[in-house]
Structure formats: C-alpha cells, structure tokens
Design a protein around this nucleic acid. Structure first.
Lengths: 336, 336
DNA sequence: TTGTAGGCGTTATCAA
DNA sequence: TTGATAACGCCTACAA
C-alpha cells in the first residue's frame, strides 16, 4: 500500500493500463461498467496519482509559490490571501514559503521551487536587486516581486507608492498642527524605510518646516520590540527636542511605540500622536486605534498573481511595474 | 533554455550522461577537469535539476507540509516556525498551505500533498475526526494533528491541555476577586472552545460559585471582529448581570473586546478584567497588555515535526498523543 | 471502447 | 574514471 501505481490498478481491475489512465483523464471514453471496476480497484489499493510522474511527463506543475519575507507579519499573510484567491480562480494551488528575513532560507526556497518547475514564483525578497533573482528568471522560472521595487525594469513587480504613503502620513500630522515629529524606521537597507522617509521629507519641506524638526529614529527592524525600544529613546529626549508625533515605518513598530507610550503615562494622541503603516487588522483593534497608511494588501497579491500567470503563459508578456496608491486611514491615535 | 536536462549538459560538455549524474551526486568520482567542464556546461545552459524526475526515481520527497487552519492568526505562524526549525535540522524543507477554515481547501491541499508523496503532513484540521484524515493515512502519508485532538488514538497529535488552560484562566480571575464573569467563545464545534469552557467551569465549581454567574457569550468565530461585537453585547447586559471580567477563547477575541471596552469608556481592568488565550505577540503589545494563557507554540510545532518524522521513517512507530501544559501570563488587563 | 509502446529526466548498476 | 542502459509512474498517440 501507499505505493500502488496505475499498473497495479490495471492488474487488479483486470483491464489494461491505458484504460486506467482513461478513467483518470477521460472518464467519458470508458464504459460505465469498466469504470466502476477500475474505481473499485483504486479504492481497494489506496491508489494515489503520482504527481511527480505526471509532472515529469507534462513538464510543468500546477502550483504557484509565494516566498514571504516574514510570515508572522499579518501584512504578508493578507497579501498571501490575495494571491490565493487569484490562484484558486485559475485552479492553481498556492504554496507558501517563509524566508523569515534570512537570505539563506530565501535562496534555498527559490532553488527548490525552481527544481519543482513551479509555474510561477512570487517573492518579497530580502534584497530586490539581488542577482539570485535574475538567475532564477534566466533559468526559466517566472518571478514577480511583491511589495518591493527594483532599480531596473527586468522584472514584473507590484508595489505601493511608499513615497506618497510617507507624504500622506506626514501631511496628516502637519494638518493636525504638529511641528516637531519623529520618523521611526530601519534598517535603511529596506527600500520602504527609505521611501517612506523621503515622502515624509517632501511633505515637511512643502510645509516649509525646518529639516531638523523631522527627527529620525533608526531601529534595527520593523518589529514590535523595536517600537517599544524607540519609545524609550523618544522619552529620553530633552523636552525641547521631544516630538509631539511619530510616524512609524510600519504598524508593528507603531504598536510597540503605542504600548510604551501608554504604559509610561503618555496620552495618545494628546502627548504623542502616532501614525503607522500597513493598516494591519491589529491597527484598528489597538486600544487606541491607530491611524495608519493602508496598502491594498489583497489587491497587491491578486495583481502579482495575475502578472506571474501572464509571464508564465503569454509568450508576448512584457514586464510591468504596477504601483498601487496608499490611503491614509485616520483614527484615534492622531485625532482627539 | 529553462528546460535543459542532464542529457543536454552531457552533450555540450562532451561527456556521457552518467558522468553528469556523477558530478551531481558523487563529485569525488569525477576528475577535476571533467567536473569543471560539466559545471561550466551546466551554468551555460542554466541547468536546473528536475525534482519531479528525481522524486519519481527516489520514490519519496524531501519536504514536509503544514496545512494551517488560519494563516492570519499569529498563533499558527508561530507553530509553523517551530515546525520549520525542526525540519531544517533534518534538512527537509517545509511548505505551508492555508485552509483558511475552508473544508474544501483543506481537502484539496491534502490531496495534492499526497500526490506529491510529501514525507509527512502536519495539519490543524477543521474537523479532527474527519474521515478524510483517515483516508490519507490509509493511503500511506504520515499525518500528525496539530493543536487539536481526536477522540480515537489512531493518530499522532500534539496539543495543549485546554481544559487546564481554561481552569488557569478562571482560577486567576477568582483569585482576583471576581464573582461574575463571562466566557466568550464559539463556535462550539471547535474542541478548544468546548474544552476551555469545561476548564472554566471546573474552576468555577471548585470555588463553589453559582453556575449562572459564569455567563456564556457565544460568537461565530475566533476573530477580532467577534470580540468587538461581544463587547457590545456585554455592555448591553443589565448592570446586575454584567460581569466584571471576561475570559476569551483566544487573543484575537480578547483584543477585540479590549478595544470595544476602552473605546466605550470602560476601564480595563477596573471596569472589566480580560483574559485571553494563546499569548500571541500582540497580546503583550496591546495598549493594556493582555493577561493570557500561553501555549508553547514553537515547541508544539517542533514536537509535531518530530512525530511525523518518526512516523515516516521508523517502522516501529507508535502513535502518541502529546499534550503540553499551558501557563498563565498575568499582565495589566487583570492586575491593577 | 480497449490495449500497446515510447518517452519525460534522473539515478544506479554494470561493463568497459 | 567513464559510458551505456534500465527503471521509476504516467500520459498520449496510435493500433486493434
């Protein structure tokens, strides 16, 4: 058991191998009686199609894969959901891989996906400009970059305008009357961290506010713990330099900051207004609901899936860089 | 390109097919010169091993899979991380599938994993007693049930003692002086929802408190939105019946409840104490840090991976039902 | 409608 | 050390 093949089924059913295959693939060409016999044999033997053999013959698989940067960030699981819905629509299955911000694991996953002849690979890479990605494509696996952009245009990518997002966040704070704010993000190897800051600066400059009043707090990663720690650094600033608002590079950081602020007795937003980024489900559910820059997460995933499918099936495919527009969702963390 | 085989490599390198295979699998048996030639040809052709063919020949794959119940619940991504670390240790790769609480998708994933001859499948099933699981095992794929238990012992499973967890939560509330509390959970088709309530009742009975003061609020699923809604129902109760504390079946629900309480002006824990379950990262990071029953998430995953590996490789494997012990983590949502 | 043969890419065995 | 060959399980022509 566990290892019976069409041949075995044919033998027990007393038919030829071709007939079994027909039952599997073109049931209409088989007489109901034989079909019943064959199906009975399959059940008895616990027959399971061997996908490797099918694929070997077909040359291609029926699965898509998404290599996530951080499976524990709800943002990425929402993106994955969008991908899944698109994949389901065309009857492909989706496999999730998690690189967990580890270059080695990312490479290992990509290598295996190539070897499996995965139809298409979506990836939020640690480094979107990494040569590894070029090699994968050069060897024939369609790759679409999700929530990141490359400096060149040799890939399809789907991203959100992070400069605009940064601008929206800071314009909102300026509108609320803030004239000294912090930008909390890092590491600066991340494109989004840079872009969101760039947007913040644009808004700041447009309002003719002095550059030194946009204070950069650099952290080591976009995690809750880093936000907590940043809050302590903020609290340590002399009152004259202490910002009245903070724009965090993502919601995890913002939630950490929020927690630190409240637990140290700072009222939000009166003592410190906070804007996050991503609008994950926990942002709205925070005890002081978080103002955040929303990215169309599911759409992001869907669009990426569509692109990779086009790349995989359309010979005239041309790379395109899709950019979505973020949107500010104002909540209690900035509005009294 | 994208489709060159060992044969092609052999041709371009001017060696035999067997030599190429040796370069791949037993490089020491090949002279450095030929090896270099072959490797050069591989690079030129963009050769990628065909995993399907390998697997067809080998009869078995080098991957484990985890079929998650809800990829957007951080609890399950943490479990997945535990599995991944165990898989990595034995050089297996892990693929994640998400059933998203959908029976059809769960079945589809399981079917595909069988067809791929996946070494072992871990699953948090929608219905642990479903016959589908028996069939998968009967056909030869090792299956371990994660964070659920079955009524029979024909499976390995890894779970946490939910009755104890429920008891711990409610004992804690009783210790804090509460004599009227709510249990918020549902649907009751979920074993954990039932077990945690059972534990709650045990504690309640042991303290000789009247059964009617343990109020059950039934919700449709363990999501943030349901917690919010439950909060409104709680607020709607006449003051004489309104509980002073709530034990929620998981943290998502607790976070929703917390948000509703605070936004409606109820102080936590003074007006309403809250205990959650799972101790996800957002529990500690909530603006009122949440008291929660911690499950050893990563260990859960690791143990499950170990069991499935044993089942896959050890002919003398015997099923075992591992049960972990939960632990109460007291935080500000219950402690003044 | 049913049966037969060839080949997908890889690996291991055996012979040179 | 290298080269030829068979086999893994499936599917699709093609022949009966």
């Amino acid at each position: 058991m566990g290892a019976s093949s069409v041949k075995d089924v044919a033998r027990t059913a007393g038919v030829s191998l071709g007939t079994v295959s027909n039952v599997l693939n073109r049931p209409d060409r088989v007489s109901p009686a034989t079909r019943a016999k064959v199906e009975k044999a399959m059940r008895e033997l616990g027959f399971v199609r061997n996908e490797s053999a099918r694929q070997l013959r077909a040359g291609t698989s029926r699965t898509l894969a998404y290599v996530m940067l951080d499976a524990s960030n709800p943002f990425f699981t929402d993106v994955a959901q969008g991908i899944e819905s698109a994949a389901e629509a065309v009857d492909l299955s989706l496999v999730l891989c998690n690189s967990g911000n580890d270059q080695r694991r990312e490479s290992a996953h990509l290598a295996l996906l190539e070897q499996r002849r995965t139809q298409g690979v979506l990836v939020t890479p640690i480094d979107p400009d990494s040569a590894v990605l070029d090699e994968v494509v050069a060897r024939g696996t369609p790759v679409v970059i999700v929530d990141r952009t490359r400096t060149d245009t040799r890939f399809c990518s789907v991203a959100v305008d992070d400069v605009l997002g940064g601008r929206l966040a800071v314009e909102h704070l300026i509108d609320r009357g803030h004239t000294r704010i912090a930008y909390i993000g890092g590491p600066y190897t991340l494109g989004q961290v840079r872009d969101r800051l760039a947007g913040a600066r644009e808004a700041w400059a447009a309002a003719e506010l002095p550059a030194e009043d946009l204070i950069e707090i650099t952290i080591d990663g976009l995690y809750v713990a880093e936000g907590l720690e940043a809050g302590q650094r903020l609290a340590g600033l002399p009152a004259s330099r202490r910002p009245t608002a903070a724009f965090c590079a993502n919601d995890l950081v913002a939630l950490g900051l929020l927690q630190q602020a409240i637990s140290s007795g700072t009222r939000v937003p009166e003592g410190l207004a906070i804007v996050g980024y991503d609008d994950i489900v926990f942002a709205a559910a925070a005890a002081v609901p978080l103002t955040s820059v929303r990215q169309p997460r599911q759409e992001l995933g869907r669009a990426a899936a569509d692109l990779v499918l086009d790349e995989a099936t359309n010979p005239d495919h041309e790379h395109s860089q899709v950019q979505f527009t973020p949107e500010l969702v104002a909540r209690a963390s900035t509005i009294t």
